[in-house]
Design a binder for these strands. Structure first.
Lengths: 156, 156
DNA sequence: CCATATCGTAAGGTCCCCTTACAAGGTCTC
DNA sequence: GAGACCTTGTAAGGGGACCTTACGATATGG
């Protein structure tokens, strides 16, 4: 193993979190640029927690918040915003008068579909640039590490 | 090549930007946790643009801002903050009365050193978990993509 | 000497997320 | 059923990390 302790005159390599953040920013910027091109100019990064986690028949704010790992207030604001933009609608839950069912509108579903396709497109293009296998390794490693990180305590 | 267009009933894989963001958050949280353990509790993520880019003899705000890719105002606020915390000091530039030289204090250098070591520690631990080669691939691919992304136009 | 560029700062705004607090509606127990 | 107790969503406020616009003070180059 080449285990040189790093000479102090050689340039430091970029911190891993910075690399991760940069690529995240780049890919996300690309996503939103392409969404904008296709008519979804008002969609911002923060809206993702709804588009990503909402289910097809709709669900409650509490569910979205839990899946996204955010507070209900945070997601609530996003939902209000998306409702104003016409991507989402809220209807009273017939089974629970406290709750409201949040559902994608037709336009919302369209946006979701375009976003998903675009994510795949972007990832495919990255694979073309660095090699399919290598990018596959990146995804695998990330998934492993993120899942591990997300399981801090074993269920009793 | 296994090129199945993804059955609509199989669960969607997590978006790449999300994986990147998650691992970034996890590693950065780990960094700050370890910094806190070692007495650098006040250091926050936003301070990184100074610790990362300042040079040993100190430099000007403008330099920091350019290296970090932020505005002078943004970095200026960080510098004020770090000065208040005793990690940085500002001295008048003898060669230019407009400018001030920003330098790490002894404590600042100590923090920088600990942070750098900790970045390396964390990365080494990740490598132990997923395999040295695989993590090396991750870093290589990230560096390639980030560098490519950062060079949008060829210099004339 | 004067136009112009650069150094840092001031003031205010945006985005994305959090905490604390609460009213309205469910649920469970006796 | 009548409380006690949990949920559901909202209101109000705050913080961190950035940005834009604008400026006063110094440097630089005709």
């Amino acid at each position: 193993m080449t285990d040189e302790p790093r000479m102090s005159d050689e340039p430091r390599r970029p911190p891993l979190p910075w690399l991760l953040a940069e690529l995240k920013e780049a890919t996300l910027a690309e996503l939103h640029a392409r969404l904008a091109e296709q008519g979804f100019r008002e969609i911002r990064e923060g809206h993702g927690c709804v588009f990503r986690f909402i289910d097809a028949e709709g669900c409650r704010l509490t569910d979205l918040a839990e899946r996204a790992g955010y507070t209900k207030q945070a997601v609530g604001e996003v939902v209000v915003d998306l409702e104003g933009l016409g991507y989402v609608e809220r209807v009273a839950d017939p089974l629970d008068k406290r709750a409201k069912i949040i559902r994608l509108t037709a336009r919302g579903r369209q946006a979701q579909q375009v976003a998903r396709r675009t994510f795949d497109d972007i990832e495919r293009e990255l694979a073309e640039r660095v090699g399919e296998e290598r990018l596959a390794t990146v995804r695998e490693v990330l998934e492993e590490l993120v899942v591990l990180e997300a399981a801090p305590a074993l269920p009793a």
